[in-house]
Design a protein around this nucleic acid. Sequence first.
DNA 1: GATGAATGAGTGTTCATTCAT
DNA 2: TATGAATGAACACTCATTCAT
Lengths: 228, 228, 228, 228
Amino acid sequence: MRSVLDRQLHPAESTQTGIASRQAVLAAAQQLIQEQGYAGLSMRELARRSGLAKATIYHHFQDKRDVLLSVFEHDIRTVAERIAEAAATPGSHAQRLRAVIAAYFAIQVERRMVILNAIRETVGLEDQIWAIIRAHRDDLLRPIMSILQDAIAAGVARPVNVELAVMALFGMIHSFVTHRLLIDGNDFTAEMEEFVLEMFLHALHIPADRSAHATPAPVAPLHTTDTE
Amino acid sequence: MRSVLDRQLHPAESTQTGIASRQAVLAAAQQLIQEQGYAGLSMRELARRSGLAKATIYHHFQDKRDVLLSVFEHDIRTVAERIAEAAATPGSHAQRLRAVIAAYFAIQVERRMVILNAIRETVGLEDQIWAIIRAHRDDLLRPIMSILQDAIAAGVARPVNVELAVMALFGMIHSFVTHRLLIDGNDFTAEMEEFVLEMFLHALHIPADRSAHATPAPVAPLHTTDTE
Amino acid sequence: MRSVLDRQLHPAESTQTGIASRQAVLAAAQQLIQEQGYAGLSMRELARRSGLAKATIYHHFQDKRDVLLSVFEHDIRTVAERIAEAAATPGSHAQRLRAVIAAYFAIQVERRMVILNAIRETVGLEDQIWAIIRAHRDDLLRPIMSILQDAIAAGVARPVNVELAVMALFGMIHSFVTHRLLIDGNDFTAEMEEFVLEMFLHALHIPADRSAHATPAPVAPLHTTDTE
Amino acid sequence: MRSVLDRQLHPAESTQTGIASRQAVLAAAQQLIQEQGYAGLSMRELARRSGLAKATIYHHFQDKRDVLLSVFEHDIRTVAERIAEAAATPGSHAQRLRAVIAAYFAIQVERRMVILNAIRETVGLEDQIWAIIRAHRDDLLRPIMSILQDAIAAGVARPVNVELAVMALFGMIHSFVTHRLLIDGNDFTAEMEEFVLEMFLHALHIPADRSAHATPAPVAPLHTTDTE
DNA sequence: GATGAATGAGTGTTCATTCAT
DNA sequence: TATGAATGAACACTCATTCAT
């Protein structure tokens, strides 16, 4: 009966099968949310997909909210990891930003869902979701903010509010991802990545570094347990 | 029974009271969506708020989808009008962009809903919503694209894909609006508007024009019929 | 959608079929409660018995609480009527008390449920049930209290707190009814009635009047609409 | 797995902790029933309160029915003890009746539940509950019946069916307790006790004995194991 | 144009109980 | 003795929609 709201339990106490069931639910939930949005997450369907009885889900999670929050937290954490990884790419500021942008693009497209923007669906849940977001927002933004701070300190970028700059960067990416997923459908990812990078570099006066394209870290599918 | 999908009917056939009822439904729907998101739009509540019986709503709309689509179309049209209005502000390119940004910010905040991003909630409706968006996307983007094209033609801005640039601009704004509405709550609108404008101008190499702040067109509440 | 909590609607507005359905639900509910107690009143079963769909019940009643309260109020009102009727029997004080006792015995046995005592089952409902009980308690007690006041004024009975005396009378009857219904099963009603009357008359020093047995008013089944 | 229905097991087989667990369950059950009525006794909550796992309860009791019946039997036994104790008060018949009435009042109020009347909630359980009641009814009634028989034999009371008389007495008390607990809330216990005693004495023509108020035996909380 | 009545399918959640360990 | 895991059946209630009037 581990839950997002109940973290004091040590994770090793659960039996092997117990953990497996719990993760089966989370995996099914993640998949359902990707396919049908938050509103599409019905406990009935979740039970069907996870291969468990409805009542069994309630053995592992307090309620639907708890499932949702667990998925949400796991996801935001995974995204933060991916971004941090990409930001750690060696190379020039431009190269590192390119890697970050590519990674974030990849994650968003891969999941058909934009975490930060998808919040709006979850009206009655907002209070608890805020807490999770506030707790992880820094992890999400910090690696990129660091790059910008470095660049500014090095005199390579003009001085700006780096937090706002990163938010602006995320916004641009969201916009293109949404467009690609919902409107156009064609894959102009490479082109869009290039455009976003260029806009961002120009906005901050960072010189483009076209000598070599940084190879973005390969993006593993979410909810794989091997990286945890 | 006029509906979005049923436009061949001539508009004069409805009685005075008929039109009034239809608009009462639309107004109630718009209000409900703002308050509770798309998922919060239940026919029961819609009936209660509009003062009509549930069955009566089905006289004016084919089904819930039809109500949703009607609201959606009306809204996107209103937003397009506001943007066009703001883009028509006389002044330098920078001033006009400032007006556009301010207007878009105002609309989004005013409604607690970001149209383009909110689409994701409406899985299953997407097909029909796409049609509406595709039909109106140009109206939304064109006025701002024009400004950029002018600026580029005048040698004031560097040459870029103007469509992508406008999408990037919208994305940045969405990002800040979301943050303000859901995470922070404090009103840093002025600061954020300034930041977005500055980022965008720098990204396009458009010289800032601080001689005078363009006064954005006053934003009327949506769903007022007087402007139609 | 008339409900206990929603009395301002004028009763004539409902259609004939609407009223019929509402009463079918109330009748089924009354029957179920008799058979299985308050806890046995499931909406599922209520739908089955009343021949309506579950959702239809919610068209006529706000929720289960509303059904329960409606039945409860109707019942307590009916009991009050029966008692008032019996108390109006012409004859000596002893005769009238005998009539009242017989009537109350009959009602309780007929229904397998003792209203005033059965309250205890309805823990979470108590607040609203209290309101109904307080509103009707006087109607229940007053007719019998009148008999006692008359008897006291006439010097026939010793002076006592008549309200407490009537409560004591009800308590004795409940005790015997419970015993008969749940423990013994045999019908000693006549004997028990006689015993209760005798105890009560002695307790108040009212001389027994054995000249003629008052014929108790015939007890019609509850929930018949002809008396409303 | 000792249970009410399974008495052939020799009591010494249980370990010390086993007995403790069993009684923890009974104590929690008793408390839950007091607070929420019979319907409020859920195995889940029972597990939580008793500090045991749900499955463990099934080691000590066959099923929920068994728990209920065990509590019920323990309670009725305790009540019988208290009454016998009070009836053994030395003094006149009136004094002993006063002691009995006070004791019974105290028990009922203390528990917010009237055993004999509360049965009605437990439809479907009735068959087994009857058995318990029949087995203990005599223990409950006999001490008071004895007082009356003494009084009649001594020519102090008029001759009546003493069993019915005691049932009538219990009924009066239940009525006042119910009223106090559910309707009025104020504590008129002393006044009500006096009234009941007076009614009963008059009903049986037992002379009141106001020389000294018998001090009722102090009422210990139920489910204490020290008195067993 | 308007509505009360009605409904099947679905919502999330709790129930008492079983079983392998 | 003890328990985590699991479950089918039930729970009260809401959904968007239809239809006769």
